[in-house]
């Protein structure tokens, strides 16, 4: 029995990666849920918006690197990110102007918006591949680890190490800051409250003098900013590849729906639920069981519930259970 080493393995391969991934999903799901709350449709172009913001960040990062500016021990992408956010916001607002505004005026049903977002996704996708190509790009530079497995082993004297990558730390920290700032905005400022009011009851908000176009603009600004941040964090932590962001759409939607579409707190909780389940189900428990069982009894296989390739199935299974049991999500959805 060696509980400490077992915990170390769990932390290293499950808890820390899931925290980082959960942070990224939460940021992505917040964007989806904000757009849903205000514009009342599921934005299928959100994954591409993430990719676009990340791409701009990478381009600016390259420019900075080429003139010798780096983030020192931090990734240069962090310095480039504000520009990426700005450009993504402009793209989102431009798209709204040219595409969605028309349907808002027509009072089109949500499904038309959704199909519009499919077309927008097509366009963004081509744009991204046109500018940066379909290949992998490395986003992370600077110091790779906050502490390495070796550091941890020396410090703790355990056999198993825990490594904490800089990008994981940044993902978690940035997510905490963003979520805190967003909740402060939504709950404490007049503009934020007017957004929640609009999402809750559009007609009554209009009666109270809320300007709907302004709320929509703010929703896009927030969604595009969060999308860029989420995309950059994911790109730094894993890798930037245009088509990966299309695949992220499923876990992001699952997060938003599990938490309750339209509920920001739900999006955050949903993001972590999806991340932890995805990694826990595809995690190989062999080592952990080895440490927890007496003697040298180690199971033959990897003791993995599902192969890593089926991680989508986890998001999907959770989604299905939520749809069957509680379609409004954990935190009752439909409003911000």
């Amino acid at each position: 029995m060696d509980i400490l080493n077992a915990l170390a393995v769990l932390f290293n391969f499950l808890v820390i990666p899931a925290m980082a991934y959960g942070s990224q999903l939460a940021l992505g799901a917040l964007g989806v849920t904000l757009v849903y709350g205000v514009l009342r449709f599921s934005n299928f172009a959100h994954g591409e918006l993430m990719a676009f913001g990340t791409m701009t960040t990478i381009l600016v990062m390259w420019m900075l690197q080429s003139v010798g500016i780096t983030g020192g021990f931090l990734p240069t992408a962090l310095i480039a990110m504000p520009v990426g956010i700005l450009v993504a916001v402009l793209l989102a607002l431009g798209t709204d102007r040219l595409v969605y505004k028309f349907y808002r005026k027509q009072k089109s049903p949500p499904v038309i918006f959704l199909i519009g977002s499919l077309a927008v996704m097509f366009f963004y996708n081509g744009l991204i591949r046109f500018v940066i190509g379909p290949e992998d790009q490395n986003v992370a530079d600077g110091v790779r680890f906050i502490f390495t497995a070796g550091d941890f082993k020396r410090w703790s004297g355990l056999d198993e190490g825990i490594a904490f990558r800089t990008t994981q730390g940044i993902s978690i920290l940035v997510a905490i800051l963003c979520v805190a700032a967003l909740f402060w905005f939504l709950n404490k400022t007049k503009t934020g409250k007017s957004m929640r009011a609009y999402s809750d009851n559009e007609n009554l908000a209009l009666l109270s003098g809320v300007n709907p176009e302004r709320v929509v603009v703010i929703a896009w600004v927030l969604a595009a900013s969060l999308a860029t941040i989420a995309g950059t964090m994911y790109g730094m932590d894993k890798t930037f590849k245009p088509f990966i962001y299309l695949q992220l759409l499923l876990p992001i939607f699952a997060s938003a729906i599990v938490g309750g579409l339209g509920s920001p707190i739900g999006a955050v909780v949903g993001g972590f639920i999806i991340a932890f389940s995805e990694i826990a189900v595809t995690f190989a428990y062999k080592k952990v069981i080895g440490y927890l069982t007496p003697g040298d009894w180690v199971p033959d296989g990897l003791v993995q519930l599902l192969s890593t390739d089926y991680k989508f199935a986890v998001s999907f299974a959770i989604l299905v259970v939520v749809l069957l049991v509680r379609p409004t999500g954990i935190f009752k959805g439909q409003t911000i």
Partner: peptide, 8 residues
Amino acid sequence: THNVFTSM
């Protein structure tokens, strides 16, 4: 009807 913001 619908005369309050229920979630607020």
